[in-house]
């Protein structure tokens, strides 16, 4: 099996784990935005960065900031798939007092450097990590995953400007371009179709990728590193579960009953 084939299989496992959470959790879950970034998170954690590599020195270590805290479920499932969790999380997810909250909460053990969910905070924090990295001679790269809806937040653009100004070539931004946000189509709310041009105009190197294709993501992340890098990853919200795909009402919802059965079937849980 090639590495890519293996990654594809891991992504299937991640989606299976995610759906199995619904057997234990009857609360609303951010299905759409979690499913859209499974490959992005897997690609960073398991393929492109050294995050899951054992024995890396602190100053060499890459760091991932998942600014779209809604993607917590996908993040936990990716950590588990990459062998980075000590115990299975599925039965613990969203339980009273659990560290597996619906949005990400800072936790060294879970490699969560930044509590997110209040959108637009992750990239500025990641920029701070990147500045520290450069000033202290650290070699690790800082990855930051944001949603396309999140790009509505002004605080994100403050960090975009600063990162270009300080030539943070150790910073890689990934935009999960799933084209939907809570109220509907991004293009009908705040259009992000000019996002690549905007980032380029601010002085970022911009690469486009298919956010569900590991080879495409790998190529995008390997682009030249003289400026901060932005990867606009085209994705499908709700990817992998037919009735959730491209349906904004699945931004956050309870999955149960017949639909849960259907979802289980589609990810191979039956």
């Amino acid at each position: 099996m090639t590495e890519i084939e293996n990654l594809v299989k891991m992504a299937q496992n991640v989606r299976r784990t995610m759906v199995s959470v619904a057997d234990y959790c009857n609360n609303a879950i951010h299905w759409g935005s979690s499913l859209s970034c499974v490959e992005i998170l897997l690609s960073i954690v398991s393929d492109i960065s050294n995050i899951s590599t054992a024995g890396i020195e602190d100053r060499e270590k890459d760091i991932l900031v998942v600014s779209k805290g809604h993607a917590a479920l996908a993040y936990y499932a990716v950590l588990e798939e990459c062998g980075l969790l000590k115990h299975p999380f599925v039965e613990e997810y969203q339980k009273n007092g659990s560290q597996y909250s619906e949005e990400l909460t800072m936790n060294e053990e879970l490699l969560i450097k930044c509590s997110t969910g209040s959108l637009g905070l992750g990239l500025p924090f990641a920029a701070g990590l990147a500045i520290r990295g450069k000033r202290e001679g650290r070699d690790g790269r800082i990855y930051c995953v944001v949603g396309d809806g999140e790009c509505d937040e002004g605080s994100l653009w403050e960090a975009v400007m600063l990162s270009a100004q300080l030539k943070l070539d150790n910073l890689a931004l990934v935009v999960d371009r799933n084209r939907l946000q809570l109220d509907g189509d991004t293009e009908s709310i705040i259009s992000q179709s000019a996002l690549p041009d905007r980032l380029a105009a601010f002085g970022w190197k911009v690469e486009k990728a298919n956010g569900h294709d590991f080879a495409s993501l790998r190529a995008a992340f390997s682009a030249g590193k003289e400026t901060p890098l932005a990867v606009i990853a085209d994705t499908v919200k709700g990817k992998g579960i037919s009735f959730m795909e491209n349906d904004f009402t699945w931004h956050e919802k309870v999955l149960q009953g017949k639909l849960l059965c259907t979802a289980r079937g589609e990810v191979g849980l039956i």
Binding site: P124, F125, A127, G128, R132, S155, A159
Partner: peptide, 11 residues
Amino acid sequence: QNMVAVAAGLS
């Protein structure tokens, strides 16, 4: 806003 977030990332 960036000031406080960047300060947090640096610290």
